[in-house]
Design a protein around this nucleic acid. Structure first.
Lengths: 137, 137
DNA sequence: ATCCTACGATGGACTCTGTCCAAGTCAAGA
DNA sequence: TCTTGACTTGGACAGAGTCCATCGTAGGAT
């Protein structure tokens, strides 16, 4: 059984076939799927699973911090199963594919106190944009 | 007349009442409005202006680089009239307000060549998140 | 092994954001 | 003033996501 599934069980989640399938889909391919893509892959394993359940399950996993929500454009949100290792994203401006990247240094420290306007800054997201090798040619 | 309006005219834009109003709304308050908010403010000055025109005009201004599109969450895009001075954004996780901020250093240089996967990286967006003073109390 | 029940799943309606299009209007050059 | 093609309009449509009343079932209790 996957790590993700195990952690969910440890948190007291009732283990349903639907949740298992969603967790397996996310844990299986470490890419950044949209909710609809997760739904499509889930249906392949459990044909009756509903869209609402997929949305609910993804939302719950985001809330407890097991996966990350990534909104790189104005389109559908994507879900990142790699929530336990800090990283940033590199997005192709043409085809939209996303890669996890690890910039040097702590981007949080680049924001001086005088530029924080009294906010309690707790997180920072960095999105690099450019053409991927496939789209560049 | 506003600078923005002048630049649009210089680009050969046909000056209609609608475009003038949208430009004035954006140029007037340097906040980050959604398309609907722009529409509401535009209606206050020109009651017949349509939603489609506001969307069209905003899209055109983004294309020519006079304003920026900011997608800080999965909700509505926001429009940033401050397109001519590089800056990043600080977003309140609770109420969603956005402030322009100026981090130190060039975030692009923090991504080593080995982490670029052959992409021609051309831009970087940094979004700081945290609680604003109002929401913190 | 069976029963209970609260938690989870369902699907269809609904909302929000944005796009598209055919028809009508008008800014600005001739 | 006339003409014309760029612009505007509003309503239909589409994609992404949420909500809710009802039904089903996981897992503890017996």
């Amino acid at each position: 059984m996957s790590d993700l599934l195990e952690r969910l069980r440890d948190r007291g989640w009732r283990m349903t076939a639907q949740r298992r399938v969603v967790a397996e889909v996310l844990d299986g391919e470490h890419v950044h799927l949209t909710a609809e893509e997760v739904h499509a892959r889930a249906i392949a394993r459990l044909p009756e699973i509903s869209r609402a359940t997929v949305y609910n399950t993804l939302g719950e996993m985001v809330t407890i911090g097991e996966i990350l929500e990534v909104a790189t454009d104005g389109r559908a949100k994507r879900y990142d199963p790699n929530a336990h290792r800090p990283h940033q994203h590199l997005v192709c401006s043409s085809c939209g594919t996303i890669r996890d990247v690890h910039p040097q240094g702590d981007p949080l420290s680049a924001l001086p106190a005088g530029e924080r306007f009294g906010f309690a800054v707790s997180a920072v997201e960095v999105t690099y944009r450019g053409l991927c090798p496939d789209c560049a040619r």
